[in-house]
Design a protein around this nucleic acid. Structure first.
Length: 109
DNA sequence: TCTTTGACGTACA
DNA sequence: GTGTACGCCAAAG
């Protein structure tokens, strides 16, 4: 790894996502100027075991509001449970009122 | 060193 | 509106 700095930024922004809100790979990628939403996914792939602090990766969904990364959690249902526990309604692995729940760092910050 | 894959996104048919 | 193709960059094989 040449510069894991980009990845650290992804973790930082992800932690900044307020409770009851969700963000998208594209929004984070755009904010960090990564140029590719895939970099966000790759960075989050390391999530907890790349950092001592827990990363609310469950708040990060794809542009459609789908819980695309649920399969990478200890238990697939955990992602939905966590979101619902935070006030985010999830149905069929998709965020309800996604547009309202969406939190964009580049826009909020 | 080259190839393949990956928690995505946008464009085009 | 749906399906397919390509691009983006990085890491693992």
């Amino acid at each position: 790894m040449a510069d894991p700095n980009y990845q650290q930024k992804v973790f930082e922004v992800t932690r900044l996502i307020p409770i009851g809100k969700v963000s998208t790979y594209g929004a984070i990628a755009d904010y960090l100027a990564l140029g590719s939403a895939r970099m966000v996914g790759w960075a989050l792939n390391k999530c907890n075991w790349a950092s001592d602090d827990p990363i609310p990766a469950h708040r990060v969904v794809n542009r459609k509001g789908e819980l695309s990364g649920r399969g990478h959690f200890p238990h697939p249902s955990m992602m939905q449970e966590l979101l619902e526990a935070e006030g985010v309604t999830v149905k069929e692995h998709k965020v309800q009122d996604f547009k309202e729940k969406l939190w964009i760092p580049a826009k909020e910050l």
